[in-house]
């Protein structure tokens, strides 16, 4: 039974409450860094790490925080872990750190992280908080990779740096859509994806309700 709850806490972040597509949380990094799949992956992992660590700490000390200053306390804890991630990336992956630039420190104010602390970690026991953070982190990372892959594929014909569509300049047929790499492309791609996901989940819930109706009869 208990494991069941943990699995549920983890899985809900992947689709039903996906932070990007369903809850619209953490939009700034989602839009800003996804002009290539690899940046989406790095940003997703960095955010997941911070989310996991701060959920863990905040859940342990959840009874200590004063109600009035809890947001400030959460933010300071989050900022500490973000500093760790930032120094780690600067030391080990200087190229990625340079490309993501100021969006790494902006993880501090990523509303996804703060929202999970406020809604979940500060109220639930440690194991459930970790399960929730894990699910949300994975859901966020998957969304960023999807968005990054689509934009990279249409904008430069590659995914994770591997060439998929051959360019006209090199004797192929594909003319890259320059706009996909620009800010406007980010808004358009995400808007279209959210619309498509709404259509899909509507169909899903219709199917489900039809099945349930049949069961009842």
């Amino acid at each position: 039974m208990k494991e069941n709850v943990l699995v549920k806490d983890t899985l809900k972040g992947l689709w039903d409450e996906n932070p990007v597509f369903r809850q619209l949380l953490g939009m700034c990094p989602t839009l800003a860094v996804t002009n290539a799949a690899i940046f989406g992956l790095s940003m997703g992992l960095a955010t997941s790490f911070v989310l996991l660590c701060s959920s863990f700490i905040i859940s342990i000390f959840r009874k200590v925080f004063l109600h009035e200053v809890r947001t400030a306390s959460f933010v300071v804890i989050i900022a500490t872990f973000v500093t760790i991630v930032d120094l780690f990336l600067k030391g080990n992956y200087p190229e990625i750190s340079k490309a993501l630039g100021p969006y790494i420190p902006l993880i501090v104010v990523n509303c996804l992280i703060l929202a999970r602390q406020e809604a979940f970690a500060s109220k639930k026991p440690v194991l459930r908080a970790i399960a929730d953070a894990l699910g949300m982190g994975i859901g966020f990372t998957i969304a960023l990779i999807m968005l990054g892959s689509i934009r990279e594929l249409l904008g430069s014909g590659t995914v994770f740096g591997f060439r998929i569509l051959s360019l006209i300049a090199k004797g192929g047929w594909f003319r890259p859509w320059g706009i996909m790499l620009l800010p406007a492309g980010a808004f358009l791609t995400l808007g279209t994806m959210i619309g498509i996901i709404n259509i899909l989940s509507e169909k899903n819930s219709k199917n489900r309700s039809v099945v349930e109706e049949r069961r009842q009869h």
Partner: peptide, 13 residues
Amino acid sequence: PFKGAAITLLVAG
């Protein structure tokens, strides 16, 4: 399905 966030993002684009 495009009402709300989706159309807002497209307009922002």
